[in-house]
Nucleic acid binder design. Structure first.
Lengths: 114, 114
DNA sequence: CAAAGATATTCTTGTATAGTTATAGTATTG
DNA sequence: CAATACTATAACTATACAAGAATATCTTTG
């Protein structure tokens, strides 16, 4: 049950904020196929090193990703695949919206023949 | 299936961004019990009028909320309850994280007795 | 049509943060 | 121990945006 008062909503909003950045979603996509070290993530995403490092910190602090140093490397992996459930729910919703839009559009073009 | 390339991720990130603001989550909570007009939303949330109006526009453009003018008033309602599914998924995840944290904490305090 | 009420828009300000560059810290290897 | 590779941090810049104040638009009512 969701509360109307703001304090309870803050952690939820913060969680969504972490997922509201394309760069971070890219990183999560890379990690979907298993744990990777920072260098691998940099190569797969094409992002800058400092940038990747900072995004990984954000994801780690949000508990979305788990940090694991191994020698000179640091490996990261998805903590909980729930993030992909979230993304899929959103994707499904976006698909529906696109369908409805194209439906309205085709209705409009159909009207031109009357 | 999620793509690694950024363009496909942009709409998803944008959707999350809309939900990444406490004020907007508050508005959604207010609308959870049924459609409301702007004045009702303002009173229920305690937010400023211009602020509410702007957030409602963001929510509308994201397709999360539907706008419906009735005379001098404008009523808004949740387009798709999927948003609450999303929130609950996040809530569940946050609860788990809290449980794990308190578990680690109690382990630490337990160590003081040895 | 004037006045009042409801909603939207514009403008401005302050804050947060993504990205880059440069630097620092840490671990491996020769 | 020196050199190199990997990762993190600091400092800076530019941008996005939330919030509030003022104003505009639209609707009802007298």
């Amino acid at each position: 049950m969701l509360e109307i008062t703001s304090p309870a909503l803050t952690p939820v909003a913060d969680y969504f904020k972490v997922l509201s950045q394309v760069s971070r979603l890219q990183i999560l996509c890379v990690l979907q196929s298993g744990e990777k070290n920072v260098t691998e993530i940099i190569e797969a995403t094409g992002m800058g090193q400092a940038n990747v490092s900072k995004h990984l910190m954000v994801l780690t602090q949000a508990g979305i990703v788990t940090r694991q140093p191994k020698g000179a490397n640091v490996f990261y992996q998805i903590t909980d695949p729930i993030v992909f459930e979230l993304c899929e729910l959103v994707c499904d919703r976006l698909k529906i919206q696109l369908q409805e839009q194209s439906q309205k559009l085709s209705q409009l073009t159909a009207m031109r023949y009357f």
